[in-house]
Design a protein around this nucleic acid. Sequence first.
DNA 1: TATATATTGCCAAAAACTCGCAAAGGAATT
DNA 2: AATTCCTTTGCGAGTTTTTGGCAATATATA
Lengths: 152, 152
Amino acid sequence: MSLDTTDKKILAALQRDGRMSNAELSEQVNLSPSACHRRVQRLEADGYIRNYVALLDARKMNVPTTVFVEITLQGQAEELLDAFEKAVARIPDVLECHLMAGTADYILKVVAENTEDFARIHRQYLSRLPGVAQMQSSFALRTVFKTTALPV
Amino acid sequence: MSLDTTDKKILAALQRDGRMSNAELSEQVNLSPSACHRRVQRLEADGYIRNYVALLDARKMNVPTTVFVEITLQGQAEELLDAFEKAVARIPDVLECHLMAGTADYILKVVAENTEDFARIHRQYLSRLPGVAQMQSSFALRTVFKTTALPV
DNA sequence: TATATATTGCCAAAAACTCGCAAAGGAATT
DNA sequence: AATTCCTTTGCGAGTTTTTGGCAATATATA
């Protein structure tokens, strides 16, 4: 049920390169290809590896701007939260939505082409979200770094 | 230099499943395997696809807690920012670091096992970051959703 | 020590990748 | 409208990779 050193090496390697061939991976972790393959299958089946994805370049894809949006709702009724969350989930420019501690606050991570494009997103989507009492947007000038790799 | 409909379908598919076989991908976008493969190679070479990674389950990996940390530095001198950024980049629990507009603020996205573990991270790393004037941590109660897929 | 379980390495079949090459499709020019 | 040029496509073959069975080894438990 828990992860030994080899498992952690495998997870670290696949977090760096999810398309590494099993042959190369097995070399990096000092296992035969088949043994390594069985471990990867187990890590997938047990849910440690959720999925594999391609990460795109935000600049190339014309969404170099990240905006963090803090939202306060009008109340904490469960239906209010549900309605809000369902509506937020439909906005393609919103990459993350976190329910925050303290007052009923959400933080959204939004990507946009530029400030003007964010104005469109705001007008088209954010301003129409149900139950919102307050909304404050903070623009990122520059993403210093960003990784999807969890510490192992 | 720009992306046609087929390119966008490929990128959308690979953002969902980065290990999809080229054969299956080619079916989804109505191309022959070889033509599809050439397009993927071009998208990689042109930098649209940055890399492929495995996404791990944060709960399974024992880091279910996300914390957003807002940091104000003591000044805006370039050396100050550089030193800060270099030091932050070495902390494995920090997944993202954004330089924010307005006053010289940073936002960090940190993952931890729980609040106690965050206390360790704070003590061990965050409190030792150079040039920090102020630091405010906000805990996420729940991640409503999270995706790495940029809008295409 | 003896037994049971899990993990490993080897091997072969099946699947997938990768490249060269000729044909098809579009755009621009005459 | 025809020709030329350039890009993209589909086909096919050689190579690589994946995948599962099987016996042997290693690990854990009693």
